[in-house]
Amino acid sequence: MHQFQVQSIWDGFEIGGHQIAFTNSALFMVLTAVALWVFMLGGMKRELVPGRWQAAVEGFTGFIASMVDANIGPKGKTFVPYVFSLFMFILIANLLGMMPFGVIGVHPFTVTSHITVTGILAIISFGIVLLVGFAKHGFHFFSLFVPHGTPFVMIPLIFLIELFSFMIRPFSLALRLFVAMTAGHILMKVLAGFVINGANAGLGFAALVSVPSFALMIGITVLELLVCAIQAYVFALLTSLYLNDAINLH
C-alpha cells in the first residue's frame, strides 16, 4: 500500500484554508504533463512527409479525432482538444506509474490510482456534458431521459430510471479507472511479494512459489500495460459518448 501513499515534497502554500503541498502525486502529474508536452513537440515539425516521431504523434491525434468523429459526428470537432488531453493525460499517467523507477531508488506513483484525481476528471467530463447539453438544448435536454416511443403511462418511471443512469455516470467513470489501476498495482505487488518471500524462505519455496509467480508476474505486467491503454481509451470513449448524448440528444 506504500506505493499509493501521498508524501509531501514541499510544504507549499495555503489557499482558502487548504494546505497546498507539492507531493509525489503532484510531481507525477507534472512529469506527465512534461512527458506529453515533449512527445507532442516531436509532432510539431509539420513536415509533408512525416518522420517516425511525427507519424506517431499524428497517429494519436488521428485516433482520437476519428473516435470523436465516429461517436459525435462533425459537431464533435470542437471537443477533440479536450478528449485528446484527457486520453493522453490518463494514458501517460498510467504508464508512468508502471515504469520501473524503483531500479534507481525512486517510488513511481500512479496518479490515476487515486479516486480524488479520477473523480475530478470525471466531474470535469460530466460538467462539460451538462454545460453543453443545457447550452445547446435548454430544458429540452431533459427529453434525453424519455426515449422515443415510450408509452405515456410509463414516462414518469422511465424518466426516473434514465435520470438515475445519467447521474451515475460520473461515479462509474471515476471508479472504473481508480479501481482498475489500484487493483492492477496491488496484484503486481502481491505477486512480487510472493517472489521475494518465497526466495527468502529457502530453495524449495523458491522453486515452488517464486519461479511460477515470477512467470505469472511477467504476463500480468504485460496485461497491466494493456489495461493502462484500455482504461485511458474507455475513459475517452465514454466521455465522447456522453458528449454525443448532450449534443445530438437521441
Partner: peptide, 29 residues
C-alpha cells in the same frame, strides 16, 4: 490531501489542455 491533489490536477491538466489540447492538436490536425 484532496486540496493539493485537486489543485495540482487542475494546474497540470489545465496546462495540458491549453498548450497541448488547444495549442498543438489543431495544428497537427
Amino acid at each position: 490531501t484532496y486540496g493539493s491533489q485537486i489543485f495540482w490536477l487542475l494546474v497540470t491538466f489545465g496546462l495540458i489542455f491549453i498548450t497541448v489540447g488547444l495549442g498543438m492538436v489543431p495544428k497537427i490536425g
